[in-house]
Simulated scan of single mutants.
Amino acid sequence: MTQIQVGPPPPRSYARLWVSTLLLVVYASFVLLVTMWPQPEQLEFDSIAGRVLRALHNIGVPQWFGYDKLEFTANIGMFVPLGFLLGLALARSAWWVAIFLLPAFSGAIEFTQGIALDERVSTVLDVLSNTIGGYLGLLLAMILRAMIHARDRTKIERELWERRAAAAELQRQNAARAQAAASSHQVPAPAAARIAEPDPVTRVLDADFWETGDAPTVRLPL
Rank of each mutant, 00 (worst) to 15 (best):
Q3V: 13
I4M: 03
V6W: 05
G7Y: 15
P9R: 14
S13Q: 09
A15E: 13
A15W: 04
W18D: 06
W18S: 08
W18M: 11
W18P: 01
V19H: 03
L22N: 07
L23C: 11
L23F: 15
V26C: 09
A28F: 14
A28G: 14
F30T: 10
V31T: 11
L32E: 10
V34R: 10
T35H: 08
M36W: 09
P38H: 12
L53N: 01
R54G: 14
R54H: 05
L56Y: 12
H57A: 07
I59P: 12
G60D: 04
V61Q: 00
Q63D: 15
W64P: 06
F65E: 02
G66C: 06
Y67Q: 12
K69T: 03
L70P: 07
L70M: 03
E71F: 00
T73C: 09
N75Y: 05
I76Y: 00
F79K: 00
L82Q: 00
L82Y: 08
G83H: 02
F84Q: 01
L85E: 01
A91N: 13
R92F: 11
A94Q: 11
W96D: 14
V97R: 14
A98N: 06
A98I: 03
L101K: 00
L102H: 03
P103T: 03
F105E: 02
A108Q: 07
E110A: 13
Q113V: 08
A116T: 14
L117P: 02
D118P: 00
E119I: 00
S122P: 14
S122G: 13
G133P: 08
G134H: 01
G134D: 03
L136C: 04
G137F: 01
G137N: 04
L138P: 06
L139C: 12
L139D: 04
R145Y: 07
R145T: 09
R145E: 03
R145P: 00
A146Y: 13
A146E: 10
I148S: 05
R153S: 12
T154N: 14
T154A: 15
E157C: 05
R158H: 14
L160Q: 11
E162Q: 13
R164D: 09
A166P: 04
A168C: 01
E169K: 10
Q171Y: 02
Q171F: 02
Q173W: 05
A180I: 00
A181P: 02
S184R: 06
V187Y: 04
V187D: 07
P188W: 08
P188R: 08
P188G: 09
A189P: 12
P190A: 13
A191T: 12
A196D: 07
V201K: 08
L205F: 07
L205Y: 06
W210V: 15
W210S: 11
T212R: 14
T212D: 15
G213A: 14
A215E: 14
P216Y: 04
V218F: 09
V218T: 13
P221M: 13
